[in-house]
């Protein structure tokens, strides 16, 4: 796995740029990851990112869009506004978590 430096931290990422060790994540890393995909994080974004982090810590899996939507009370449409195009993938990327996967 390549090591790279983001916001002054040496982190390991996979070939799509996702952190491979979720515990290497921090808030300032999150801001920088968001900037890399053209998103300036507002409070609305942070609420979602912190939910994803907590949820992953409990369940060991990245929350699905539906789960993020119901647990945080954010309509799915708004998730598309906040993380345009690919909210599930982009939220996981910013939160330093594995992207949502199927079984193959």
């Amino acid at each position: 796995m390549p090591t790279t430096t983001i916001a002054g931290h040496a982190v390991e990422v996979n070939d799509e740029g996702f952190l491979t060790h979720p515990d290497q994540w921090s808030d300032d890393l999150g801001s920088e990851l968001a900037r890399l995909i053209g998103i300036e994080l507002t409070d609305d974004h942070w609420k979602l990112v912190h939910f994803l982090r907590d949820d992953f810590a409990h369940l060991g899996e990245t929350a699905t869009l539906r789960r993020v939507s119901t647990q945080t009370g954010t309509p799915i449409k708004s998730l598309f506004d906040l993380f345009p195009g690919k909210p599930a993938k982009k939220m996981a990327y910013v939160a330093g978590l594995p992207k949502p996967k199927g079984c193959v």
């Binding site: 869009l65 993938k89 996967k101």
Partner: peptide, 13 residues
């Protein structure tokens, strides 16, 4: 698919 590919795991894809 709602995922980013039909195959989403490295060895499988």
């Amino acid at each position: 698919t709602p995922l980013d590919g039909a195959f989403t795991k490295p060895v499988a894809s």
